[in-house]
């Protein structure tokens, strides 16, 4: 049986942390994402999540995103989304959480918004 694979790439930019996430985010691998995001929240308060490559996300993934948002807001920062896939947009909408994140078409636009 194929395991759920999530790919995470982190780019440490001047004012923003750019995190590119791809693959499948579910409860079997969300701890991996959560650990990376927690580590980032400890040193940067502005984060862009580039999520064009996410082909599946469950509420476990949403909780990791919300947890990051909470930490960034505490430090007067924000989490913004770049090019989220249709699945990400859909699940955020279904959960009623779509208004929580500003969404940009590209990672450059999202990074530039800070």
């Amino acid at each position: 049986m194929a395991e759920s694979i999530v790919n995470i790439e982190v780019e440490d930019l001047k004012r923003v942390e750019l995190v590119k996430i791809g693959g499948r985010i579910d409860s079997s691998n969300v701890a991996q994402l959560d650990n990376v995001l927690k580590e980032i929240a400890g040193r940067k308060n502005n984060v862009v999540l580039e999520m064009s490559g996410v082909d599946y996300i469950s509420s476990a993934g949403l909780r990791a995103m919300i947890s990051l948002l909470r930490e960034c807001k505490k430090q007067k920062g924000d989490v913004r989304l770049a090019a989220p896939s249709e699945r990400v947009v859909e699940v955020l909408g279904l959960a009623g959480l779509d208004a929580l994140f500003e969404v940009y078409d590209t990672d450059a636009a999202a990074v530039g918004s800070f």
Partner: peptide, 21 residues
Amino acid sequence: DGTSADGSTGQLRIGGLGLHL
């Protein structure tokens, strides 16, 4: 708004979101 979002997101229950979906 920042403060409310902090409070509310902190209160999200483990199973609440999944059941909502």
